[in-house]
């Protein structure tokens, strides 16, 4: 017996039933250029309804430390892929980056470029991620090493956890080291 074929419903598949995907980012850097990859991707993952965690470790601790999070810096020292803005073929001289005031200038320029794209600065970005349901974790070894306490960090940090704790919580997750 045949039944008339139903027209395709054409309702987008928002994948609400796929609840098993989980992503954990390890944010280990504190230079302005290197904190954005995990923040941008974590934010995107949350927007896709994916359970998202960020484990802040070593220099990445600055991203969630109240004293530092609004003052992350950028230098091109050691980064040979730095060119002047506008797609120039020139490589910025490494020696120039070491001159006094150059980090401040480079940081200012990068912050402007990021703001021009309507991408938030780090404190607002971290808040957005927390508001979107992202889980923020601080690394115990880094906290001990740097003499930090939970009070030095923003309230959105869920807890200070050990490497073993992180391995447990990331079971079944895609783990991305940045």
């Amino acid at each position: 017996m045949t039944t008339p074929q139903e027209a395709p419903s054409l309702v987008p598949d928002f994948g609400d039933d796929d609840t098993d995907r989980k992503i954990c980012f390890i944010a280990s850097k504190g230079t302005l250029d290197m904190v954005y990859p995990s923040l941008v991707m974590a934010n995107a993952a949350l927007g896709e309804g994916i359970e998202t965690h960020i484990f802040f470790t070593f220099w990445g601790m600055d991203i969630i430390t109240k004293k530092h999070m609004d003052n992350l810096q950028f230098t091109w020292l050691g980064n040979t892929a730095m060119h002047p803005p506008g797609g120039s073929k020139i490589h910025m001289p490494q020696g120039l980056a070491g001159l006094p005031g150059m980090t401040t200038m480079a940081t200012k320029m990068m912050k402007k470029q990021i703001a021009d794209l309507d991408v938030p600065e780090v404190p607002e970005f971290v808040q957005m991620i927390a508001d979107a349901g992202g889980h923020l974790w601080a690394c115990k070894m880094s906290v001990d090493m740097m003499g930090l306490t939970k009070d030095d960090m923003i309230d959105e940090v869920a807890d200070i956890i050990s490497a073993t704790d992180f391995i447990e919580l990331s079971e079944g997750a895609q783990v991305i080291f940045t």
Partner: peptide, 25 residues
């Protein structure tokens, strides 16, 4: 989402409650 929150005036948390999981889409 950031613009909807900052300019549109509906906080991020609420957007995720109103349109669960994939608010932007």
């Amino acid at each position: 989402l950031r613009r909807v929150s900052n300019v549109g005036g509906v906080p991020t948390k609420q957007l995720f409650q109103l349109f669960p999981k994939k608010p932007a889409k």
